[in-house]
């Protein structure tokens, strides 16, 4: 077995923390684990991608084959990561767009969510949408736990072959003293996945 998760996010959203937690949980599950990241441009609002790979014969920090799962904390970034998607890929992405510097000032146009979803559906086997920042703000008054809600939901829908217990231990190991709210968020995503996650229709979606 070889499993590849691509975590795609905007700098500051917690994408790198998310990938490290998955890596830690996979290591606890006795898989070989490797994570490929590029940290240099992970300043706030830059485009950040990391590859978490685990399984039996896994050595390469770069994916050989398309991803099994793309976790997007931002829809445009999920579509950028669809470079690594094919029919076997499931995409679970935030449906909450964040402007880029160029779209904010009007140099480029941020595509409609509908178009992004359609493009994702053309490339991936399954596309699921979630609003993790909204859920985090509603519960915690800040969007900071969106990454944990996304992770919890992905585990609950069995998109990730790692149990909630393993993920909770990994959150504690990676975040230490900052883990208690993160664990609440992870459970919120896990227990609320059915209400939080929607599969958009293929032609038009109603988010």
């Amino acid at each position: 077995m070889r499993f590849t998760v691509v975590v795609s996010s905007v700098g500051g959203q917690g994408g790198l923390t998310l990938s490290r937690i998955i890596a830690r949980a996979a290591a606890e599950a006795d898989y070989k684990v490797v994570v490929g990241e590029t940290l240099g441009m992970s300043q706030r609002f830059g485009s950040v991608q990391s590859y978490v790979r685990f399984g039996d014969a896994v050595y390469s920090p770069l994916p050989l084959e398309p991803a099994d799962l793309i976790l997007g904390l931002e829809p445009l970034e999920a579509l950028r990561a669809a470079a690594l998607a094919d029919r076997r890929t499931t995409v679970l992405t935030s449906a909450e767009p964040v402007d880029t510097q160029t779209t904010q000032v009007g140099l480029e146009k941020y595509p409609s969510l509908e178009w992004i979803v359609g493009e994702l559906q053309r490339r991936a086997g399954k596309v699921l949408l979630i609003r993790p920042f909204e859920a985090s703000r509603r519960r915690f008054g800040t969007g900071i736990q969106a990454n944990m809600i996304l992770l919890g939901a992905s585990a609950s829908l069995q998109l990730l072959p790692l149990s909630l217990e393993l993920l909770e231990d990994a959150v504690r190991a990676v975040l230490g003293g900052r883990s208690s709210q993160a664990i609440q968020a992870l459970r919120l995503g896990f227990n609320g996945a059915e209400n939080l996650v929607r599969e958009p229709g293929r032609a038009k979606n109603n988010l």
């Binding site: 609002f45 445009l76 880029t100 493009e119």
Partner: peptide, 17 residues
């Protein structure tokens, strides 16, 4: 397969914070 992002996506250069 060579990973190719869909064409025409807006860039996300890192801005000043």
């Amino acid at each position: 397969a060579e990973p190719l992002s869909p064409g025409g996506l807006p860039r996300r250069p890192p801005p000043l914070c």
